[in-house]
Design a protein around this nucleic acid. Structure first.
Length: 767
DNA sequence: CATGTGCAAGCGGAGAGTAT
DNA sequence: ATACTCTCCGCTTGCACATG
């Protein structure tokens, strides 16, 4: 019934051998591409000097725009709406052409020169279509987010200085520079010998970029084409444009070295997000492809391993840089393999997405970062500190109590606010009506009555829970014995003996809470809401407290499992018994939870904790050398924050480099298969790879079972999302040693079988 | 007056629905 | 798929009233 709409499409796309050129060879574009390819770079509209830049591209645009016109009509007729590209076609290139119409360009160039940040914002506002009243004359893609703050760029460069200095005098390829604020800031610092700008919205941004090109001794070159259309990008990678770069042939060991003489900048920020096929957005697709290019040394990675500084919409950072183990999916693991480090230089600094981890871990993580920053002498300007960094600065390790702050969800703010207002008597409990006053009287008299319902004691709650579980047990498995029989009997005896009561009593012997029966309908709306939120928070706290207790207990079991490795003889035996007993108890306790979500909460907590306490931590986020700089929505146009990600590709593991890409396909097969269901157990996951795979891999990959390396000897318990890179490496190597491993053909068809679900494919096409 | 019975309302669990 | 949110439902409780 329920299908994952995105996955099939994505998988199909990933498996396609032409994936890398997917964007670059749209059907409508092939002819164009041929023309461009046969002529020299001048024909592609590359601006060598201001004169040629103005004449030649214009010719080009006229040609393409005519053809596009007819096609646009066709598309609009079919869809009756905005052009939604089919098959091989993609919006980027379409938009690029639309905007290159010379007629529109006149409008923009005729406007007043741009002055300062406000002037720039005004200019962009008009270029993006202006207000609705004036009628839309869109010149540029209005979904693109631009950086409009020079201060932000300066702060970033200041922060990145130590790692940027090695690039001074390098070449730069700059995709989507837009108004060029960021581009020129980094240009001025690096003084590159070549700076190739690839800007599809030429009409809108040329007036802003032209001064850069015209400056005395300028090393800028502008190509009015989209750099994320790979065919265009390929043209930029020519000896004419990048005379200093030499292609490193396959087999050249320098191909696996970082090439600091080339730096790639890109702005992939779109707001709102542009979903594309199985990918949640164009940016995630492009990042996927850039990383894939780094592995296969295509595109600019043919010059070596090239550092990439990429702006993405703030939400997108979690794709490659998750902050919770829950978000560590295939794309993250592949990014980890490709890049030794991915660094969030600047962003909103907030965690994004629905699944947040325990706030304590975030705080602990941030405090570790602050320590590292301190040692390295890195400081964050006050106005660039994010909420987490500020909190961590104020805290010290003793503040992280076992009492634990759980994830603070939105409604807590509302609850606190209402409690404060209620205390301040800003609203009353009951409505101002005869019934309300009557209810208030009843309420007050009940407060002194001993017979009303009260807060139950923990023992009584436990007894009630077990009673319920017993009833369920008897119904479902009447023949077996109920595992908590003893505990329940003991509780009943203690209750009978009067050792605990049903209700807690306050000091004066009166109940802690009063009966609200039949009074609720006279509550004021505010009080009603307050009551509701109180209940919510009580329930939540109870759930979290239980999850915490279970997580703590399991942590202790894991500690014992580490201890046992250094023990032997009878000592080990008794410890083993203790581990088994407590594990058994722990599992039974988990069984008592009737809610699947509650169990998931415990697993998430456990996985996040163990991932965090690895050395180094599993998540790249927890390895960061500095906290990201806080951006402000005002620093972007439109006001949608972006995150700057710093990708430094590293050589692939030897096993993946060897026999590329066949061995990489094995790795990818393992990763994508396992992480399709991130919460499945190691046993389930590995068994699903191939018959016998579980037995072979577990035996050949010791780290999977080693608690000191993040593993767990209990393969039914550990979830696949906690597999570390080391384990993946061992698994890939072991797989290739495996005499009975499925052939490459088998693997491809195994993956293929998932693609050939026509229903699923249909859903995948949706949007 | 003690005990039984029926009813309304609260409470928390479970599951459906929804957003990302 | 997963987490969040909402609603329903069944069990428990307090209470009124009936019954022995």
């Amino acid at each position: 019934m329920f299908r994952v709409p995105s996955f099939t499409g994505r998988l199909a796309l990933l498996r396609s051998p032409a994936t890398l050129h997917y964007i670059g060879t749209p059907r409508s574009f092939k002819e164009d591409w041929k023309t461009l390819h046969t002529k020299d770079s001048e024909a592609a509209g590359i601006a060598r000097n201001p004169n040629s830049a103005q004449s030649k591209p214009t010719q080009k645009r006229t040609r393409t725009s005519t053809r596009r016109k007819s096609q646009a009509t066709l598309n609009e007729k079919n869809t009756g709406g905005p052009v939604e590209e089919d098959g091989d076609q993609i919006g980027l290139e379409e938009d690029a052409r639309k905007r290159n119409k010379p007629k529109k360009r006149k409008d923009v160039t005729s406007s007043a020169p741009v002055q300062g940040k406000d002037g720039l914002i005004q200019y962009l506002f008009e270029g993006y279509g202006g207000s609705h009243k004036k009628g839309r004359t869109k010149v540029g893609d209005s979904r693109r987010v631009q950086i409009v703050s020079k201060e932000l760029c300066d702060d970033i460069i200041e922060r990145m200085k130590p790692s940027l200095e090695k690039h001074v005098g390098c070449d730069i390829i700059d995709l989507n520079p837009g108004p060029g604020i960021w581009s020129s800031a980094i240009h001025d610092f690096l003084k590159p010998r070549t700076h190739v700008l690839m800007e599809p919205d030429d009409a809108l941004y040329r007036p802003l970029l032209q001064p850069l090109l015209d400056a005395e001794g300028s090393t800028y070159k502008l190509i009015p084409k989209s750099g994320v259309v790979w065919a265009f990008l390929q043209q930029a990678l020519s000896p004419e444009l990048l005379p200093h770069q030499k292609v490193r042939e396959p087999g050249d060991p320098r191909l696996e070295e970082q090439n600091d003489t080339l730096l790639v900048l890109a702005n992939l920020g779109y707001y709102p997000k542009k979903p594309y096929r199985g990918f949640s957005s164009i940016s995630s697709l492009v990042i996927y492809q850039l990383l894939s290019a780094a592995r296969s040394h295509s595109l600019f990675h043919k010059y070596g391993l090239i550092r990439m500084l990429i702006w993405v919409e703030d939400e997108e950072k979690k794709m490659v840089l998750p902050r919770s183990i829950v978000n560590r999916r295939k794309s993250s693991v592949e990014a980890e393999v490709t890049c030794g480090d991915i660094f969030e230089v600047a962003s909103s600094t907030d965690a994004v997405g629905v699944s947040l981890r325990d706030h304590n871990l975030d705080l602990e993580s941030s405090m570790a970062v602050l320590k590292r920053m301190d040692e390295a002498g890195i400081k964050t300007p006050k106005n660039r500190q994010g909420a987490l960094e500020m909190e961590a600065t104020k805290s010290s390790s003793r503040d992280i109590s076992a009492e634990s702050q759980i994830v603070k969800r939105e409604f807590y703010k509302e609850l606190e606010d209402l409690e404060r207002r209620f205390d301040a008597e800003e609203f009353s409990m009951f409505q101002d009506s005869p019934e309300g006053r009557q209810a208030l009287e009843t309420f007050q008299s009940l407060q002194t009555s001993a017979r009303s319902p009260k807060l139950q004691t923990p023992e009584w709650t436990r007894m009630a829970l077990l009673t319920k579980a017993e009833t369920r047990w008897k119904k479902e498995a009447p023949k077996s014995t109920f595992k908590h029989e003893d505990e329940l009997r003991e509780l009943r005896e203690r209750f009978a003996a009067g050792e605990f009561q049903q209700y807690q009593l306050s000091e004066d012997g009166l109940p802690k809470r009063v009966n609200k029966t039949s009074m609720a309908k006279y509550y004021t709306p505010e009080y009603k809401r307050l009551e509701y939120l109180r209940t919510r928070s009580r329930m939540e706290n109870k759930r979290v407290a239980r999850a915490m207790a279970l997580s703590d207990e399991y942590d202790e079991i894991l500690t014992m499992q580490k201890e046992i490795l250094s023990k032997d003889g009878s000592e080990a035996d008794s410890l083993r018994q203790e581990i088994d007993r407590r594990t058994e108890e722990w599992k039974e306790e988990m069984q008592l939870m009737n809610n699947e979500d509650d169990r998931a909460l415990v697993y998430n907590m456990l996985d996040n904790r163990s991932a965090f306490h690895r050395d180094p931590p599993v998540l790249y986020w927890d390895r960061r050398k500095a906290e990201p700089l806080k951006t402000d929505p005002q620093e972007f146009f439109p006001k949608a924050e972006m995150a700057l990600l710093d990708f430094q590709p590293q050589p692939l593991w030897p096993v993946l480099r060897e026999n590329f890409p066949a061995n990489y396909d094995v790795f990818e097969y393992i990763v994508s298969n396992l992480l399709m269901i991130p919460t499945q157990s190691i046993r389930q996951g590995l068994s699903s790879l191939a018959p016998g795979a579980f037995e072979w891999l577990v035996q050949e990959c010791p780290s999977i079972s080693d608690p000191n390396k993040g593993g767990n000897p209990d393969h039914d318990f550990m979830r696949v999302r906690t597999l570390t890179l080391e384990m993946y490496k061992e698994m890939t190597e072991a797989w290739l040693r495996w005499p009975f491993r499925p052939s490459r053909y088998d693997l491809l068809s195994l993956m293929g079988s998932e693609v050939h679900d026509p229903d699923a494919a249909e859903v995948g096409e949706r949007v």
